[in-house]
Nucleic acid binder design. Structure first.
Lengths: 205, 205
DNA sequence: CAAAAATTGTTGCAAATGCAACAGAATTTA
DNA sequence: TAAATTCTGTTGCATTTGCAACAATTTTTG
């Protein structure tokens, strides 16, 4: 993503783009209107959040540097309001899809490379989503865990993997009850499928 | 997607593209190598399939006209081999992402509009995927069903919705046991949340 | 550094779910 | 149109899962 720096400097040349900073705890954007807004996270971390009807906080998605997100990617009118919360200090590039898509008459080089970059970032997003769907499609917690571990393992070319966030968050990501997941992890250890030290896991098969 | 026809006629002007026909039951493509292949389904229907280690057929995804799919969207090296099976006669546009992405020196108008179209199709895909993830993230069958119905309802601006495929397929899509789903549908009816006639559902709340 | 907050690890229990199996209806195919 | 296949609807039962609750540890914050 080395051309990201280029892009952000060149911004405003031909597309209405904003680069903004958000401090930890502040709201980066909400998904309410249908502006087809796109955001690129340049640095920091953020969560896509919803409060369900019980008032429980639901973490729908988590974003890291170079992730792309925004209203443009979300179905019209999900019941409750979604918003993106900076969980660390963030720098974000914001713009409207329609601006990128249509508005450049002068056929500038910058515009072409922006679209290419966008395509690349979105493609990346789709790949991640497919991985997530694959995992969520598994019926049991055990299968979800193994599927998740397997993807991490393939990505890192190793049987030794590190879960990149807390087990609490992992349970959220797999969309299962945390205590049930802990129980299942214990079973996997007892049955000799994995060993574990903190959030470092070794696959024994 | 009216410019699709245009695109496919103009193809080969600057990007290596193939338009191929596949008869029902034949294999459109497999996800094995890392070619970053992209396919656009012009007509027909197809399923993304995997046989798990028990030999059970898993339907990972289903594609309709104007859907975009291919290796390019899939994580490297998923354990088992995936392939796309035509479940009806299909017309498909096939090309490599890298060809589209980089290879056009002559900055032609066709190329620009192809990329725009691609972006649009992929964006669409992401929206669908987000809907799917939203549903799969729900913990109970009831919540999955209601979430799915709600999305259909919002899309059609109506409390009367039609499940666009068989209930067997729906269970697959929600990734739950069919009989358990049927049981839950019955409960929803008994408790007055919905009424049902075949695959037509009316939301009563 | 002390207090507060978050995370980990564990358990009992009730509820939800998957599995297996079957019969009848509907649809597709030869 | 007859046969084959797929889909719907249903049930009992074993297993898995979520929920609630708590203590111990670790991390973060003022």
């Amino acid at each position: 993503m080395d051309n990201l720096d280029l892009i952000k400097d060149m911004a405003d040349n031909c597309v209405k783009m904003q680069k903004k900073s958000f401090s930890k705890g502040s709201i980066i954007t909400t998904y309410i209107e249908k502006r087809r807004q796109i955001c690129i996270l340049l640095s920091g971390k953020a969560d896509l959040i919803r409060y369900d009807f019980n008032g429980n906080k639901d973490i729908i998605d988590r974003f890291n540097a170079n992730d792309i997100f925004g209203e443009a990617f979300y179905p019209v009118n999900t019941n409750n309001e979604l918003f993106v919360l900076a969980t660390e200090d963030c720098e974000v590039l914001l713009f409207l899809y329609d601006d990128v898509h249509v508005k450049c008459k002068n056929n500038c080089k910058f515009h072409a490379s922006l679209i290419s970059l966008l395509l690349e970032l979105i493609l990346n997003k789709v790949v991640h989503q497919n991985a997530r769907i694959e995992i969520l499609s598994k019926r049991t917690i055990r299968e979800k865990l193994l599927s998740y571990f397997s993807i991490l393992s393939v990505k890192s070319f190793s049987k030794n993997i590190t879960v990149p966030f807390s087990l609490t968050t992992l349970a959220d990501y797999l969309s299962v009850d945390r205590s049930a997941m802990m129980r299942e992890i214990k079973s996997l250890i007892d049955e000799g499928f994995i060993s574990k030290n903190g959030n470092k896991i070794r696959l024994l098969y």
